[in-house]
Design a protein around this nucleic acid. Structure first.
Lengths: 180, 180, 180, 180
DNA sequence: TATGAATGAGTATTCATTCAT
DNA sequence: GATGAATGAATACTCATTCAT
């Protein structure tokens, strides 16, 4: 799974075949199918593992923050470690087995939950505009994913989160903040 | 090209092979390659044609509008007719020949140009917040593309633009508008 | 036929398709098959025409010469004008329709006939060694064809006959001449 | 490789496709490409193996002979076992991957080396005419290859070397020998 | 449990030949 | 007669999956 994770991160899900994965893992081609009965099974397993890690981190990091800005910072922190894998996942998600889509939805649900709560609090406190929670969430996700999926538009190489993360949060907060 | 356009719209670019396209077009498999010397050529041709149409419509529709809201409405009007094709293009763009990416960039450039101009005017008039133009544009594109690419999250079937277009514009305008 | 002759001379018989020939001839692809019902027919026609020209030249040129050296000089003169086509023919002869082989045999028969006569005369006169006529002929043909078929071993570009013809004749005559 | 060698020997390199080779080898079509990544790879491998065998035999057989006649006899002995394959190679060499031409050049170089040495000795001893070594070599190769490539002119079926080898050597020696 | 050779269905592409206009 | 779009069989190559050892 580590081998697959690494190759998927580098080359995407579509351009990596089972032979390459087996080779990277240092096992025989046939042995791969003893652990995962189909390629899709392997893909699902890798994505699920990734999903669980993200979920755990999301839960852990969000706990200590209550402001919307804090939640967004936590969100970026969650992504940071798996940024390349996550970007590949976003790009290829619609060509992957159904389960992959569910996993992604799950991950996003968790994030949305925290954003919803924080947003509601801030709205009640009169800090941010009273906008529909789902639109607020989708604006953030759309913006962030746009940067992640089209990374070559925004960085020559390296991390998009590192390079643009704070700008994105600042910008987003500026949009939603209620000027007094 | 119509056959390919139709199949690509329905099933995406990756799941449609040249046999299916030929069959849909009512010609033999071999005949396909008299018109387009490779599959990539065909893909490029279909996307280029789409790009030109969009460009023409964008130019035409944006002309008569000057407000930011007007431009966004025009943008949605441009997409409306090719919404399914456009959504598939967004999903698969990173697996398509290089030219496809250039076409998409071109299309977005034209849109961004109009949004930039309108936004600048509105900022000068004190109607909207003074935010960086590129972030403003990417926020809109990110939001819209998020809805288009993940359409099954937002509509059971049918048009996302039809169902959510106005909401998206209202929401976006609400975010950027300067409350007085 | 001129178009085909030209293309065959340049690129060989195997790498030229009927579309290229039609294009070179300035007619439509379909029209080609009004004149020649199959590609093989065309190939045969081109080779036959070439064969007739060579035969005529061979006959004409050999007439005035009686010495073996004179005949060999005449032989090279015959080839000179069609050297590239002839070389391609030698290379590809075994992949061409049966008739092509017969034509080539015909051409060689004519040459062999003149060489036989001259050789016999010279043997009777005690000028050259009394060797079997067919071996004498095949030695000359083998040597000449070896140079023509493998031209890149012997010239950078241009005519092999021009560059090496006289040497080949001198060498061959040296071999067969009876030292006194 | 044995299957390919056999089919190439019988039908030439151009008329044998990968399906036929796989079938002859008793494996599936796809399996062929596990062993050789392209058809050209297979062709190269078969020719290279043949080249090595010939080289080894050439070296071995030439060692014990010092006379020009001995070398020519050794040369024919080398070819004898692979006569059909070698003849096909000569016929098709100009349509084969570049490597094949290099292999053939290699094989001929080795032969030419031995012939050069023997010829020089015999010239010094006054046994044969003082002719240019390369022309001497090319005369022999041209003659021999002419018989091998056009085998149907010289034998109904079976081995050309067997049927005509000694005659060719006798004839060639007669040509080059210095009558005293 | 592991191996790795083999499978076999699939895919893009080529090209001589046909035929309605 | 001429056109040129269409045919359709052929060909090299890919890859997830299987299975005898």
């Amino acid at each position: 799974m580590d081998a697959a994770y690494s190759l998927f991160s580098q080359r995407g899900f579509l351009d990596v075949n089972t032979i390459d994965i087996a080779e990277e893992a240092g096992i025989s081609h046939g042995a791969l199918f003893l652990h995962f009965s189909t390629r899709d099974d392997l893909v699902n397993a890798v994505i699920s593992k990734f999903g669980e890690e993200i979920a755990k981190r999301t839960h852990h990091l969000s706990e200590s923050r209550s402001s919307l800005r804090g939640i967004l910072e936590a969100h970026l922190d969650c992504i940071r470690e798996n940024e390349f894998f996550y970007s590949r996942l976003l790009r290829d998600i619609h060509s992957l087995p159904k389960n992959a889509g569910l996993q992604l939805t799950c991950i996003l649900s968790a994030v949305s939950h925290h954003i919803f709560l924080a947003a509601q609090r801030e709205i009640e406190n009169g800090n941010i505009k009273p906008v529909a929670s789902d639109l607020l969430f989708n604006t953030w996700i759309g913006l962030l994913h746009h940067y992640l999926m089209n990374r070559e538009l925004f960085v020559v190489s390296g991390s998009v989160v590192e390079r643009h993360g704070n700008n994105l949060i600042d910008h987003f907060m500026k949009l939603v903040t209620l000027k007094k």
